[in-house]
Amino acid sequence: MASILSLENISKRFGAVVVADGIDLALDQGEALGIIGPNGAGKTTLFGMATGTVTPDAGRIVYDGADITRLAPERRCRLGLARSFQIPQPFSGMTVFENVVVAAAFGAGESERAVYDRCADLLDRCGLIDKANKRAGGLTLLDRKRLELARALATKPRVLLLDEVAGGLTEHECGTLVELIKTVRAGGVSIIWIEHVVHALLAVVDRLAVLHGGKIIASGDPHTVIRSPQVEEIYMGIAADA
């Protein structure tokens, strides 16, 4: 299968801290890839580089056959590369509905009126329809996370990058979220999902990669990777090179 998004030999450091050290990662068309790793492993920075809010020091990013390493974030979004933020970033002064309309109109490049129905549907699917006219700034954490997802979906993505959308959710909420992500995937969207809630991740992804110290230290079948000695070491809190 052809890869839709690939990071080629990407490196990034913030001062003395190396957050990406020659990372190679490719996402196949239609694939769902999970990424786990301890805090500070560079997971969110990886999304930042893929979507253009962080510039890599070296390496290149290829999306759908084109080099997008230097492309502005809004252009990448319009090409179909959407993300959710780990810390929700709502447009707090706008209503929930307006938040989604912004993403639908600009991210998918459609006229404002043309997106109203689609946005209402999306809010319904994400469980936010009753709060459509509430100010986004007044939402609970759970609803903010739902809004992150609704907004990312509103841009009509071909690749969806999810950053810890399940954290802090109850078991039941998590189940609903997993079902939603499965339907998105069934619609042909390729997904990379960063998550600490491993069981939610395993319910969706085809492949699991482990990021540690700015490197991909394991990648492959989710159930095999999760039981690998490297992962056990990291999650037992023992440094990999100790």
Binding site: T51, E74, P90, V102, R151
Partner: peptide
């Protein structure tokens, strides 16, 4: 409301 999010949503 949020410049980063605006950019990431295609603006």
């Amino acid at each position: 409301d949020n410049e980063t999010a605006a950019q990431s949503n295609g603006i």
